[in-house]
Write a protein that binds this DNA or RNA. Structure first.
Lengths: 144, 144
DNA sequence: TATTGTTATACTCTATAACTATA
DNA sequence: TATAGTTATAGAGTATAACAATA
């Protein structure tokens, strides 16, 4: 048991580089070059949480609104999302994933996730369980 | 127990956006604007693993050699690392952390990690234990 | 006036390709 | 020729500041 001896500061110092390096490796696994990891993440959120405004989506993805403008522009260009004018508020358009977007997400699970899935499959059941358990903790940490 | 029902592909699809969002949040917590998160990570590796060549450090950090050139240029400019010519191989310089670099890392643990440390301190002991357990799993995953 | 989103701009991060110097 | 590293270039990722349109 080394748990008790690790302070929050020490854990932070360990965790940050570790996450940084893994993110680099994941980002480089680009099978389909048409959609970037950042765009894919936003698309996935639209799929999971349903249609919403650009600002709300930016909040979920933890990016600033101008960044989301750029992400959505790329997704719309590829026909993966559509904007429907909100009749109640003309400033806002409601953004929804399209059928093509849904199809792309499904294809991603088979092709683009392949690398990570293979790595995950090579882990022990305990390690996979640890990864699964970490997702809600990360989401809690990312809550500003 | 939902562990058994989650496939590797589903776990991958959950994990990637989660890591991505947390990285965004961490990256934005820049108290000391002189050194970036990327540079700090490389500096920490030099501190932990000792002096080494640029290529080897790039391998540890999972970046390509040209990226490391840039990172090291910034660190050297701030006097945080020094290069000593390798007498056995004039192509290579051995890079080591300086006293200033060590001091900066120490200061970081108190100031720049503060945000993350506070978040970590707000977690339950179980959640912190989960984070600590995840570091080696991430490192294993990042092994190409 | 406050809010939603965009445009303009700039900096960080990172890669690939081409190159230099040494082995 | 092979290796270690750098330079040149470019694209992805993201932010802040300023703006436009609407509420």
């Amino acid at each position: 048991m080394t748990t008790a001896t690790t302070t929050a500061a020490e854990l932070a110092a360990l965790l940050r580089p570790s996450i940084l390096r893994l993110t680099r490796v994941i980002r480089n696994q680009r099978v389909d070059l048409s959609v970037t990891l950042t765009q894919l993440s936003a698309l996935g959120t639209l799929n999971t949480r349903g249609p919403m405004g650009a600002g709300e989506l930016a909040g979920h993805e933890r990016v600033q609104p101008p960044s989301m403008t750029k992400i959505l522009g790329a997704l719309e260009e590829h026909g993966l999302v559509s904007r429907v004018a909100n009749p109640n508020d003309k400033r806002q358009a409601i953004i929804a994933i399209t059928d093509d977007g849904i199809a792309l997400l499904a294809a991603e699970r088979e092709s683009r996730n392949e690398w990570l899935s293979q790595r995950l499959a090579a882990l022990t059941p305990e390690e996979r369980a640890a990864l699964q358990a970490i997702v809600p903790v990360f989401d809690k940490l990312a809550q500003l």
